[in-house]
Nucleic acid binder design. Structure first.
Lengths: 150, 150
DNA sequence: GCTAAAGTCGACTTTTTTACTCAGCTTTAA
DNA sequence: TTAAAGCTGAGTAAAAAAGTCGACTTTAGC
């Protein structure tokens, strides 16, 4: 039950773009440096996000990437689904009803996986990039406070 | 976000033992046949479940495996955690607080993964093997009904 | 127009994990 | 005593994940 680095890196990259939203195109190189991710690898991930319509690219000098929509309009679920494929603990959830499992027995487990999937989805969809940026800035505030009183 | 076959097979095997609970030790071979899982592979999985205290073995002729506790006392979460490792979308959730991520920024995502983990856990812990056996027998009833009316 | 800073594309490699397989051993009911 | 079970550890093949490389295209700014 683990995310691959694709989802983790991709989310961090999109979060980075969200933090710089409004500043024009952000070069992938700078995102990779800040997030400590291999530039070439990140290139691949962001290409997927672009094709899925979550990010836009601006080619040429002074180019880079921008979120395709406002940070409020992009959920963590949107990003994870694109990079990790459909959220489904077992494959048969992606098949049409009745297309898998001959034995009804086996399908008892299916109901459980469905509930797991739905609960993951609903958690992931409940966070937007804007929420994350808010939280990050609050954390920085707290840090300052803390420093102040030392 | 996918389960490996370890969790899937292991759960099916334990479900099989639950269906035969009270009938004495069930040989792994028969479980493997019913569930269409490689016998040798299943041996490895059930060994892990045994060491974790979820199943008991009876060696020698007429031996086999038995659930270590009543089916009501074993949840799907117990089984999955043993076979798939701790439920944690990202590794840093298994570290102690503050041991990971230097940058507070990075840790904004951590809060999200924590909620995902907790929601998965609570779904998995809400099903016991007894629930699954009940459901399977109901499904068989329904099947008979269905057949009856054709 | 040239140049350098960007993104684009596809193929390649390495590493890790998964999913088995095998052989030989130990235990024990009948 | 024997055959049916579990136990153990090593080995392996295939797949997926993670990352690398190099050549190409686009475009702002000089």
């Amino acid at each position: 039950m683990k995310l691959s680095t694709r989802g983790e890196y991709g989310l961090r990259a999109m979060f980075d773009l969200a933090q710089h939203y409004g500043e024009g195109p952000i070069p992938i190189k700078s995102v990779a440096e800040r997030q400590e991710i291999s530039e070439h690898y990140l290139e691949q991930l962001i290409a997927v996000l672009r094709k899925a319509g979550l990010a836009k690219s601006v080619r040429g000098a002074q180019g880079g990437y921008i979120l395709a929509r406002d940070p409020e309009e992009i959920t963590v679920g949107d990003i994870i689904r694109v990079l990790e494929g459909p959220i489904a603990p077992v494959d048969c959830l992606n098949d049409r009803e009745g297309e898998c499992c001959e034995r009804a027995e086996t399908c008892v487990t299916r109901g459980i996986w469905e509930k797991v999937r739905d609960s993951i989805s609903s958690v992931l969809d409940s966070f937007t990039l804007a929420d994350m940026v808010d939280k990050a800035s609050k954390m920085q505030q707290d840090d300052k406070h803390y420093m102040y009183y030392i």
